[in-house]
Measured scan of single mutants.
Amino acid sequence: GIQEIVAMSPELDTYSITKRVKEVLTDNNLGQRLFGESILGLTQGSVSDLLSRPKPWHKLSLKGREPFVRMQLWLNDPHNVEKLRDMKK
């Protein structure tokens, strides 16, 4: 599951990941809330907090790293936007 992926993950640049996620969401007119609930399993508040103030990787616990790994996996998925759009319906 995701825990193994997080444990094996190389250090991620949390700042550039969140910046990229925000760009993709904005460009495709997708909400942070939808993204947070569907992709990260987080509430709106947690998501906007994460996206606006990402902590550096080395300061995060494994649990804290999980959303960033999920974001990275989502960014790597060529169908990420379509999938999210489908969830919106």
Rank of each mutant, 00 (worst) to 15 (best):
residue 1 G to M: 08
residue 1 G to F: 11
residue 1 G to R: 08
residue 2 I to T: 07
residue 2 I to H: 06
residue 2 I to G: 06
residue 2 I to M: 08
residue 2 I to S: 10
residue 3 Q to E: 10
residue 3 Q to C: 08
residue 3 Q to D: 14
residue 4 E to V: 04
residue 5 I to P: 08
residue 7 A to V: 08
residue 8 M to I: 06
residue 8 M to Q: 15
residue 10 P to E: 12
residue 10 P to D: 13
residue 10 P to M: 06
residue 11 E to T: 06
residue 13 D to S: 04
residue 14 T to W: 02
residue 15 Y to C: 14
residue 15 Y to K: 13
residue 16 S to W: 12
residue 17 I to C: 02
residue 17 I to S: 00
residue 17 I to V: 15
residue 19 K to M: 12
residue 20 R to A: 11
residue 20 R to T: 07
residue 21 V to K: 00
residue 21 V to R: 00
residue 22 K to Q: 14
residue 22 K to L: 09
residue 22 K to R: 09
residue 22 K to C: 09
residue 23 E to Y: 07
residue 24 V to T: 11
residue 24 V to R: 06
residue 29 N to T: 05
residue 30 L to V: 09
residue 31 G to M: 04
residue 32 Q to V: 14
residue 33 R to M: 10
residue 34 L to W: 08
residue 35 F to N: 02
residue 35 F to T: 01
residue 35 F to G: 02
residue 35 F to M: 00
residue 35 F to L: 04
residue 36 G to W: 03
residue 36 G to Q: 08
residue 37 E to Y: 06
residue 37 E to C: 06
residue 37 E to H: 03
residue 37 E to W: 07
residue 38 S to Y: 15
residue 38 S to K: 15
residue 38 S to Q: 13
residue 38 S to C: 14
residue 39 I to W: 01
residue 40 L to G: 00
residue 42 L to T: 10
residue 42 L to H: 07
residue 42 L to Q: 07
residue 42 L to W: 06
residue 43 T to M: 06
residue 43 T to A: 11
residue 43 T to R: 11
residue 44 Q to E: 11
residue 44 Q to D: 14
residue 44 Q to G: 12
residue 44 Q to H: 12
residue 45 G to P: 14
residue 46 S to K: 14
residue 46 S to L: 08
residue 48 S to E: 12
residue 48 S to I: 15
residue 49 D to Y: 07
residue 49 D to E: 15
residue 49 D to F: 10
residue 50 L to N: 02
residue 51 L to A: 01
residue 51 L to V: 03
residue 52 S to R: 09
residue 52 S to G: 09
residue 52 S to D: 15
residue 53 R to F: 15
residue 53 R to M: 08
residue 54 P to R: 02
residue 54 P to D: 00
residue 54 P to H: 03
residue 54 P to N: 00
residue 55 K to N: 05
residue 56 P to K: 14
residue 59 K to R: 10
residue 59 K to P: 00
residue 59 K to G: 10
residue 61 S to F: 00
residue 61 S to Y: 00
residue 62 L to K: 15
residue 63 K to D: 09
residue 63 K to N: 08
residue 63 K to C: 05
residue 65 R to Q: 05
residue 65 R to K: 06
residue 68 F to D: 03
residue 68 F to G: 03
residue 70 R to N: 07
residue 71 M to E: 02
residue 72 Q to K: 12
residue 73 L to T: 12
residue 73 L to N: 10
residue 73 L to W: 11
residue 73 L to V: 12
residue 74 W to I: 01
residue 74 W to H: 00
residue 75 L to C: 02
residue 75 L to G: 01
residue 75 L to K: 02
residue 76 N to L: 09
residue 78 P to K: 07
residue 78 P to M: 07
residue 78 P to W: 03
residue 78 P to G: 05
residue 79 H to K: 15
residue 82 E to F: 07
residue 82 E to R: 11
residue 82 E to K: 14
residue 82 E to N: 07
residue 84 L to T: 04
residue 85 R to L: 15
residue 85 R to N: 15
residue 86 D to P: 11
residue 86 D to M: 08
residue 87 M to D: 08
residue 88 K to A: 13
